[in-house]
Design a binder for these strands. Structure first.
Ligand SMILES: [Mn+2]
Ligand SMILES: [Mn+2]
Ligand SMILES: [Zn+2]
Ligand SMILES: [Zn+2]
Lengths: 143, 143
DNA sequence: TCAACGAATTAGAACAATTCTAAACTGTGA
DNA sequence: TCACAGTTTAGAATTGTTCTAATTCGTTGA
């Protein structure tokens, strides 16, 4: 049996463990969504793209549940939101320190490792404000 | 006559000149919007905030016209768009090189001068892509 | 000065993304 | 296996934005 091909049962088991650790009840829908999101490497999804992708695996999950789940996963620290577009939300399975290239026309996000990039000279915020995070978006386009 | 208090006629004349230079017909609505946008220093507005603000001066401009005008001003290089929120668009009268603090809960943008901030270590984008611009958003919150 | 014409404005409909509601269903612990 | 809180869902509602097509306006040439 090839090691590269994970068994569905493996993926489910991992997803269930991950959900339990996060304090989320492992429902059929959450297990399926977690499977799709976390079985491969780092991913960037929108609610709609994830909904479509899950639909293609044959499992039926409502769009409302996809939204609920993305928000719950984000609150639980399994995902983070990435803001690059004024009209839709992206969610990122990479919750570590990193930044993004964004290909606007394609809605495509590409990670930039946190170690490789640095922002210098950020002034102290005005009195009464403190820095939450610093986001860098490198907007790129096809040649 | 105090110099600090600009006459309406002055503001209009400036707005009309600015519109003509940009190749835009100086209609009553555009003159009014340009007046509000450009008479004071750098500003960050949303369509709705600008619409409300203009309404308070007693002038009636439809929301559709506010949207049209913001886009036309942006195409003409009088404004630029700032993306900090996944659900609404901000427009910035400062079209020069600079970055932003963003107070999410209040929808408030604060400029960071371009000279003070620097991004180092941006990798070359993947083949076939070229950098359009680099945006930095320093997300801050009230203490 | 004014008619004519293309440009601009507008109300309201349409749209897209997201959130809400409240009824049906399901996972879990006893 | 039951009961119940937690979850899912269809569909309605909401929000920000864009579109449509009818009206109004700004400019220009006579
Ligand atoms: Mn967009
Ligand atoms: Mn928001
Ligand atoms: Zn990422
Ligand atoms: Zn600015």
């Amino acid at each position: 049996m090839a090691k590269a091909l994970r068994e569905p049962k493996d993926t489910s088991a991992q997803a269930i463990a991950r959900l339990r650790e996060a304090g989320l009840r492992p429902t059929r829908q959450r297990v399926e969504l977690a499977g799709v999101l976390f079985q491969s490497g780092d991913r960037h999804v929108t609610a709609e793209s994830l909904h479509d992708e899950v639909a293609q695996t044959g499992v039926k999950v409502s769009l409302a549940t996809v939204y609920n789940t993305l928000h719950q996963f984000t609150e639980a620290g399994l995902l983070r939101q990435v803001i690059v577009d004024a009209s839709r939300s992206y969610f990122d399975t990479n919750t570590g320190d990193h930044q993004h290239f964004f290909v606007e026309k394609e809605g495509l996000l590409i990670d930039i490792p946190g170690e490789s990039i640095a922002v210098a000279g950020v002034p102290a915020p005005p009195a009464g404000l403190s820095v939450d995070r610093v986001d860098v978006v490198v907007r790129v386009r096809r040649n």
